[in-house]
Amino acid sequence: MSDNLRDSYQVTNPRPLTNFFHAVWAVVWKDISAELRSRELISAMFVFSLLVILIFNFALELDARARENVTAGVIWVTFAFAGTLGLNRSMSMEKDRGCLDGLLLAPVDRSAIYFGKAIGNLIFMFLVEIIVLPIYTVLYNVNLFVPGLIITIILGSLGYVAVGTLLSTMAIQARTRDILLPILLFPLVIPVLLAAVKASSGFLQGVSYDEISPWLNILIVYDVIFTAIAYMVFDYVVEE
């Protein structure tokens, strides 16, 4: 190789922790940059979410009281299905042109790839939620800007994405990946969805915090456990 290609650079070997965070940030930056160009993931999730809340709005023909009762269920159904779309798209981007192999060839702890993908997925999910909540508020005339509900949505999304990123990595290796992800994912996120719907419903109906706190605790414990499991098993999941 020519001499001028040789000079003034080297592969640095920083401390493993620094290397780990550099890799996580690199994956997040890459996902956000690619999405800003294509807008495929966000637009698919957003259009799907919009259609779901519109269909529920017209199909159920609810009075004011009933609207408040079903709101928690409708928003979590919307987020769960839109999230599946996003997870599938996020990992299929890695499958195109063999990019997953490119990631796996990098000399970093493979859990850095998991955390990078999970943070990217979480950002996209939050973006869709930020857009959908005001639209829902207008369509259903229900105020969703309740601090407790926002915390519930953050905790629920964290758990959903923690499991979803791991399972979408597994599903992407299969030929039937589009149908495999929901089949694998929904049974595992039942505790998250159940706890999130109960906590959300509690906050919307003004139930006391003592009644809601067990559901929030379930969400926190689920988030911690499944993030830890994903951290431990990701290397095996991506192994051929």
């Binding site: 592969v11 070997n13 890459k30 940059s33 690619a34 999405e35 160009r37 294509s38 981007m93 195109d96 042109r97 063999g98 990019c99 192999d101 490119g102 060839l105 000399p107």
Partner: peptide, 16 residues
């Protein structure tokens, strides 16, 4: 860290 790999597929992101 010591390997450079070129495969059938380019391992590149089309949207970058």
């Amino acid at each position: 860290r010591r390997l450079g790999v070129v495969s059938h597929q380019p391992l590149l992101y089309g949207d970058l």
